[in-house]
Design a protein around this nucleic acid. Structure first.
Length: 883
RNA sequence: GGGAGCUUAGCUCAGUUGGUUUAGAGCAUCUGCCUUACAAGCAGAGGGUCGGGGGUUCGAUUCCCUCAGCUCCCACCA
């Protein structure tokens, strides 16, 4: 095979991915092996791949491929999420562009369009994941709104309703006037927003509904809601306002009379100490209203427009109304002053509309029973969070969890299985038939036509919280009498969950609740929280900023392995990731390095009759040790989910140890064959390295592994066993490092003296240099001789250096500047003296010697003696030079 | 307003119950090399008083306090 000097990923990636699919290597069925299970955080069905997905799925794939190569039965479930609000919005927008308004369609007609949209645009992201190399079991692909999973959602609703944990109630909810739906507390994002603080005059009523000459000042940020005011509230301890106790005031512009009431909630030193109470449009005011029996007047409709009850500005949008009413108040003489003001405002996570607190009938799931159990799952250590700090966040939320508003005023999603009787009562059943039966029990005269199903659908998270269960056995959630099927029994609980911290409450916490409820066990053992991918300047990647690269373009340009590596290089768990394309370049360079190492090895011929050279034997021995040391470290890193450290360990093993040292040592003269023993060992090393690299870089490793030796059809590197760490000699590795440092020093001498690497030099040394490494030293430093001496012959005509504590000397007649050599050594002496001083200070400290552990003291003694020897050597050398 | 976390070389980060030759890596930088695997490369080198101050300790990047800066999460818009 003729190989180009550069690795060309596009030639190999599709080929091997098709091969893996064709051979069903990703598919898993229960068997006697230990399972390793992961479920994908289901992306929006209409989503496209972005850098966050790349990060998440790369980590997932590394974990899955590693488990597979450890002999586990690895199963990674892919799928998508129906994403009610996001998808419905997209469909509405599409219809709008076609000149169709959602209001003109029936529910069934709209859903027909929605499904068409889903078929057309859905699942693109799953195809894109294949380009990344994701080894998902595609035969098990799931969608949260497919019939079976929808049934699971409905059964779950019925389950909790019958338990009494789901209730319907009129509550203050977060209304999204653009999405025309309520959203849960967690879907509201609070942002400091610049607005104004309007100080308005409310005149005291003269008792006949006419303004007197006295007024109070009330401050608000929302003057457009004054028509819905039910009272003015002051703090009972506020003496400034005692005079108006029992009086009434008139709402400006509409002159409606409202009482002045007292409540501790009002803070005396905020604003004017007078609070306008608007129960229908503020959650706090609603509470005050309940306490004081105030009437509730709702003047804002579903779309955020003022209703007829407002009397004025009817039909105006709430923000338009605000502008207009300010002017009206000014003209009427009711505006005292306007201040600039910044306060937190809630926005809808999905539509970015300003949330309108609003009273409406919604369905809720009680958290009082589910949250404590889920909290305990993490507190007890049954589930581990990586990094650990998210335990705090989790605990805080769990201890303050509000009931979950699960109804959404949308059509795309699972419709709430509540059926209303004509008299307003309702029944909850998982089918219309059962509902009719239950309804007849309440009222025998009810017919199927009389029953009306609730118009709302369920929150999308109400289906995704079942994901780790329903992907295996959709019949289990909500039906405790159904025994888990073989898949669920085998694969549940899953092992690791890789996800972003932004959905710790939406999804992670709730999956733990559902797992405990329906399986009596947590859904996963470890949760690895990735960071958020940001650009080089630390900005979040977003479409509007245009700072988010298209991952597919990157894969096209650099190759999937390079993109994976680039992502992993900087991905420590939990901290945000500053992405830069140069990291992907580094990944591409590494691919190229691997490719070329392979080319070098493949270009060699072996001759079994040749004896193994001494330096080659040493190199094989050393790299075997080095490999085992690295494998041990890699496993340790993986165990702690330090994926970038594991990667860096392998990276350096390959690049520095294998390529820069090992291959250079064993490299035969050009065109000459290599002895068989070394050649076979080298091919073996390459084979092992490819296996070690495979979870991270699946494509290039498969390509090379398939070529480095004869492979049968159906063989793949992804099903090989990962190397296991064996015993290795740390002392031999240390000896070798002594040798490499000596080689570097000689090379440094060449560089500073302008001596070509081609000109051989001599070397003398004094001290304990391991004899077996002399041959390596000679070859790599290009030395004609290496001699152990008792004293250097002409110390002023050469360059001396230390390798560890071994003194070394390169004779360089006529090339040495004695002054420079002396200066170099004296600098070294100063450093050593400082070091020694510190060590001696410690050792002469009575308390250190008596308090510190023996091993530490011993180490200090060794430092002292080593440094003393070095110092003596250096001083002698300098003295000689100065002669 | 409440809570959590971060601050170590130009950049991105390790630093594992306080002691491993007076701090490590990758990238970037500088110098010299187109040496028949690789210039997407090779060889060598430089670079940090571990945010400031204080304390505990024989010993602090590591523990405590404090100040400064940054980030994130939670929180009902008077």
């Amino acid at each position: 095979m003729e190989l180009s000097a550069k690795y060309n990923p596009s030639e190999v990636e599709d080929k091997w991915y098709s091969y893996w699919l064709e051979k069903k290597f990703f598919h898993s069925e229960p068997d006697s092996r230990e399972p390793y299970t992961v479920v994908i955080p289901p992306p929006n069905v209409t989503g496209v791949l972005h850098m966050g997905h790349v990060l998440n799925n790369t980590i997932n794939d590394v974990l899955v491929r590693k488990a597979r190569m450890e002999g586990k039965n690895a199963c990674w479930i892919p799928g998508t999420d129906h994403a009610s609000i996001a998808t419905e919005n997209k469909v509405v927008a599409k219809l709008k562009s076609m000149g169709i308004s959602k209001e003109d369609l029936t529910r069934e007609e709209f859903l027909k369009y929605a499904w068409e949209w889903k078929e057309e645009h859905g699942g693109i992201i799953l195809k894109q994941l294949r380009k990344l190399g994701a080894s998902c079991d595609w035969d098990r692909t799931r969608f949260t709104m497919e019939p079976e999973l929808s049934e699971a959602v409905i059964n779950t609703f019925c389950h909790f309703y019958k338990k009494g944990w789901i209730y319907r109630g009129v509550r203050m909810v977060n209304w999204d006037p653009e999405g025309h739906t309520a959203v849960s507390d967690d879907e509201v994002i609070h942002r400091d927003t610049k607005s104004h603080f309007y100080h308005m005059r409310y005149f005291i009523s003269d008792g006949n509904g006419k303004p007197s000459d006295k007024y109070i000042i009330v401050a608000t940020t929302r003057p457009e809601t004054i028509m819905a005011d039910a009272a003015i509230c002051v703090n009972p301890n506020d003496e400034r306002h005692h005079w108006m106790k029992g009086k009434k005031v008139l709402i400006p512009l509409i002159n409606k009379e409202i009482p002045i009431i007292e409540d501790d909630y009002v803070e005396m030193d905020f604003g004017t100490g007078c609070l306008k109470v608007t129960p229908a449009h503020d959650a706090h005011d609603y509470e005050i209203g309940l306490r004081h029996n105030l009437p509730i007047l709702d003047i804002i409709d579903d779309h955020g427009k003022l209703t007829a009850d407002a009397q004025i500005l009817v039909g105006e949008d709430r923000f338009e109304a605000r502008k207009k009413i300010v002017k009206m108040l000014q003209e009427a003489g009711n505006m005292e002053k306007i201040e600039d003001y910044t306060s937190p405002v809630g926005y809808s996570e999905r539509t970015n509309a300003v949330i309108e607190p609003r009273l409406s009938a919604q369905w809720f799931l009680k958290m009082s029973e589910l949250a404590p159990v889920a909290l305990d799952s993490v507190e007890s250590g049954l589930i581990k969070f990586i990094p650990d700090k998210y335990r705090n966040t989790y605990r805080h939320w769990m201890e303050n969890a509000h009931d979950w508003c699960i109804s959404r005023q949308l059509w795309w999603g699972q419709r709430i299985p509540a059926y209303y009787l004509p008299d307003g009562r309702f029944v909850v059943e998982n089918s219309p038939e059962k509902a009719l039966e239950a309804a007849k029990a309440l009222d025998a005269s009810v017919t199927a036509e009389d029953l009306h199903q609730d118009e709302d659908v369920l929150d999308t998270w109400f289906s995704s919280w079942l994901w780790p269960i329903s992907v295996f056995d959709p019949q289990r959630p909500g039906q405790m009498e159904h025994q888990p099927n073989a898949d669920l029994a085998y694969y549940y609980p899953t092992n690791d969950l890789v996800t972003g911290p932004d959905i710790i409450f939406f999804w992670v916490a709730r999956m733990i609740m559902a797992g405990n409820e329906f399986m009596g066990d947590v859904p996963f053992r470890n949760v690895y929280f990735t960071g958020i991918v940001r650009d080089k300047l630390g900005r979040k990647m977003s479409k509007t900023l245009g700072n988010s690269p298209n991952p597919l373009d990157l894969i096209e340009k650099y190759g999937a392995d390079a993109v994976r590596l680039g992502m992993l290089l900087c991905s420590s768990a939990g901290s945000d990731i500053l992405y830069d394309e140069s990291q992907v370049e580094q990944g591409r360079n590494f691919c190229n390095k691997i490719w070329n190492a392979y080319r070098l090895i493949k270009g060699w011929s072996s001759d079994a009759s040749l004896p193994q050279g001494e330096s080659s034997a040493i190199a094989v021995k050393w790299f075997t040790d080095k490999l085992n040391q690295a494998v041990e470290a890699v496993y340790d890193h993986f165990d702690k989910f330090r994926i970038s450290d594991a990667l860096m360990t392998i990276y350096k093993l390959f690049w520095d140890d294998f390529c820069a040292w090992y291959l250079e040592i064993i490299k035969p003269e050009f065109g000459k064959p290599m002895d068989g023993v070394t050649y076979d060992a080298t091919v073996g090393f390459m084979d092992t390295l490819l296996k070690l690299l495979h979870p991270i870089m699946p494509f290039i490793t498969e390509e090379l592994w398939q070529n480095i030796a004869e492979r049968k059809d159906g063989e793949t590197v992804m099903n090989q066993r990962l190397p296991q760490a064996k015993q290795y000699s740390s002392s031999f590795i240390a000896d070798f490092e002594l040798c490499t440092s000596a080689i570097a020093s000689v090379r440094n001498i060449r560089q500073t003296k302008g001596i070509s690497p081609k000109d051989a030099l001599e070397l003398q040394y004094k001290g304990a240099f391991p004899g077996e490494l002399v041959t390596v030293l000679k070859k790599m430093a290009n030395l004609s001789s290496v001699t152990e001496v008792s004293g250097f012959e002409n110390p002023d005509s050469g360059s001396a250096f230390l390798a560890g504590t071994v003194e070394m000397f390169v004779p360089l007649t006529g090339l040495v500047n004695v002054e420079e050599e002396i200066q170099k050594m004296e600098a070294e002496i100063r450093h050593l003296e400082g070091f020694l001083k510190g060590v001696k200070a410690k050792l002469s400290n009575e308390k250190f010697v008596s308090h510190a552990p023996a091993a530490v003291v011993e180490l200090e003694r060794k430092k002292e003696s080593d440094a003393t020897v070095k110092l003596e050597n250096l001083c002698r050398a300098v003295a000689n030079l100065k002669k």
